[in-house]
């Protein structure tokens, strides 16, 4: 079956205009739902990136001076061999550099000026007792030791940030799913109303022998076009969320905890592609149901 692209485009365009208000509502709903959906992923990625150092029960990190002597180092290591410490891992300068490169993979200008020698090695410590006060006290014991540059603990604040981010992203996800369902129904309504308003054309098409697909495709393209416009809006919103909000939080010097709160380019792109995929699926379901229920009789 040959369906000329000009025919399909013209029909789709006419259909879109015919029901401008409904189309508008549909596009907005799709846009907002996809934006929330994408936001869910971005916030998750950002939180994961920011808290990667704190995974697996690590409660505090002892950053050594890069030029700490072997003696100072041994001293610390000695103290860590204690019943209060469940386990610890030493991350040397090369490994720290590797992490650094990974974290700033998209911004070579960050790691190009850095060499392993200037990065601090660290001990990542898992205490036996994860209670916040105990951890705090334990961490403090190391803060003033010779050779130690800084001790950073994953105290309540971090846990709270993790939990709150989880909450927020869960709300994003739930609301976006509800809106996606609404968007699917709106697309369905849209396509059905387009079908209704073109009853006589459809009748003629059927009687002169147009194939089902030929009749369907302009209507399905209409659903797809709405989803794509919505997705484009959502993408712009996501771009803004990433570049202004998330990046802004991650850059802040004020919040040590937020360091690394960022989304890599590849994470952003995979989120965009996922969003586009969802848009296609939503419009596919909505318009497919519409054409099979209201067109083929």
């Amino acid at each position: 079956m040959a369906i000329s692209p000009i025919y399909a485009l013209r029909e789709t365009g006419q259909n879109l205009w015919r029901n401008f208000m409904l189309s508008f509502a549909t596009i907005i709903t799709i846009g907002v739902s996809l934006w929330l959906f994408g936001g869910f992923f971005l916030v998750n990625y950002a939180v994961d990136n920011a808290t990667a150092r704190w995974e697996g029960g690590i409660e505090f990190v002892i950053w050594m001076n890069p030029d700490a002597s072997a003696e100072q180092d041994a001293n610390i290591r000695n103290s860590l061999e204690s019943p209060a410490i469940s386990s610890f891992a030493y991350v040397d300068q090369d490994a720290t550099y590797a992490e650094f490169v990974e974290l700033f993979a998209d911004t070579p200008e960050m790691y190009e000026v850095v060499t392993p020698e200037i990065l601090p090695p660290s001990y990542r410590v898992i205490p036996t007792n994860p209670d916040a006060d105990v951890v705090q006290e334990l961490a403090l014991q190391f803060a003033d030791r010779p050779g130690v540059r800084d001790v950073v603990s994953a105290d309540e604040t971090i846990r709270q940030i993790q939990n709150q981010a989880d909450e927020i992203s869960r709300v994003f996800l739930i609301v976006s799913i509800i809106l996606l369902i609404a968007a699917t129904l709106l697309i369905l309504t849209n396509v059905v109303s387009a079908i209704r308003s073109r009853g006589s054309e459809i009748e003629i098409m059927k009687v002169v022998g147009a194939t089902n697909w030929f009749i369907r495709i302009p209507f399905m393209l209409e659903g797809l076009a709405q989803a794509m416009i919505g997705a484009l809006g959502a993408w712009v919103g996501l771009f803004f969320l990433n570049n202004n909000v998330i990046a802004g939080l991650g850059d802040g010097d004020a919040l040590e905890l937020m360091r690394g709160f960022r989304v890599s380019d590849s994470e952003f792109y995979s989120t965009s592609v996922l969003m586009l995929g969802i848009a296609v699926i939503v419009s596919g379901i909505g318009s497919m149901v519409a054409v099979t229920r209201y067109l083929d009789t």
Partner: peptide
Amino acid sequence: LPKKTVAENVAFALEVIG
């Protein structure tokens, strides 16, 4: 089809079968 001309009405039958 009321919005199409005579020629377009006839052409429509051929257009939609490709």
